[in-house]
């Protein structure tokens, strides 16, 4: 169906709407995939570059976001919106959470050379220590996946034995966390420590520390106490790495 949509010029607004919908639901990978495919037939669609920019920013991939704006300007040199994004990036002062390493690279002049390294490479290097800590969790029996998410629902890292939609799951986990945290506050039961959702086919664990949410997806027979005991230590280790 997507191929048919893309082959028809008048359907570009449908593609843009669909991509926007993905974006609103924090399904950044799907938005990116759709826009990149669509750009092959419509390289002069300003809207597609703008969505791609937002999607990459949503994923914390600022290098790719910058690149796509540049690419857009090479096709549409007169685009005021794209020019504005380039200007904003130049003037940009450190953004709020989460602290993506790439933004620091932009601020420190001595590290400018690092910018020449493709963004993907930087991310892999930064992600590895976190990933190895998350993978320790997978060694426990009946654990299927571990996700690290920020409070706004953006995926920081993940390790899993099964393929699933990580971005969407991250957003859902953050949403559940937010609701539980709100209930605790209203009932004057203090800050959120952890949450467990037990379903007939499995369990979802949610832990939070300093704005970082760790979620563990497990089978129905997993030992609750074991997960609870290990999760705090894993979360502390991850937090140290991210801060370090």
């Amino acid at each position: 169906m997507t191929d048919e949509l893309m082959s028809s010029p008048e359907s570009s607004s449908v593609i843009v709407s669909l991509a926007r919908l993905y974006l609103e639901n924090k399904m950044f990978d799907q938005a990116i995939e759709l826009c990149l495919s669509s750009l092959e037939s419509s390289p002069e669609s300003e809207e597609l570059y703008l969505i791609l920019y937002e999607a990459y920013m949503g994923k914390g991939e600022t290098g790719k976001a910058r690149e796509i704006v540049k690419k857009g300007l090479s096709h549409i040199p007169g685009s005021e919106k794209l020019k504005k994004l380039v200007e904003e990036k130049k003037e940009e002062v450190p953004a709020p959470p989460p602290p993506p390493p790439e933004e620091k690279v932009e601020e420190v002049p001595e590290k400018v050379a690092v910018e020449e390294v493709p963004p993907e490479k930087v991310e892999v290097e930064e992600g590895d220590p976190v990933l190895s800590v998350l993978k320790k969790f997978l060694s426990l029996k009946d654990i299927y996946g571990v996700l690290l998410v920020d409070e706004s629902g953006l995926l920081i890292s993940q390790a899993s034995r099964k393929e699933f939609d990580y971005e969407t799951t991250a957003a859902l986990i953050a949403s559940m966390y937010s609701e539980a945290k709100d209930a605790l506050e209203k009932l004057e039961l203090g800050g959120f420590e952890s949450g467990i959702v037990e379903l007939p086919r499995g369990k979802i664990f949610i832990f939070e520390e300093g704005g970082i949410i760790l979620s563990v997806l497990a089978g129905k027979n997993v030992m609750l106490g074991l997960v609870l005991a290990r999760a705090r230590s894993i979360l502390s280790q991850v937090k140290k790495i991210l801060e370090g």
């Binding site: 859902l172 949403s175 559940m176 609701e179 539980a180 209930a183 605790l184 009932l187 004057e188 039961l189 203090g190 800050g191 959120f192 420590e193 952890s194 949450g195 467990i196 959702v197 037990e198 379903l199 007939p200 979802i204």
Partner: peptide, 24 residues
Amino acid sequence: KEMEERINARKNFMVTVNGEGGII
């Protein structure tokens, strides 16, 4: 209700929320 919508299940699930000052 939030959990129901997120996990797409209307029944047969249990939720534990641990706060610093108590548990629901």
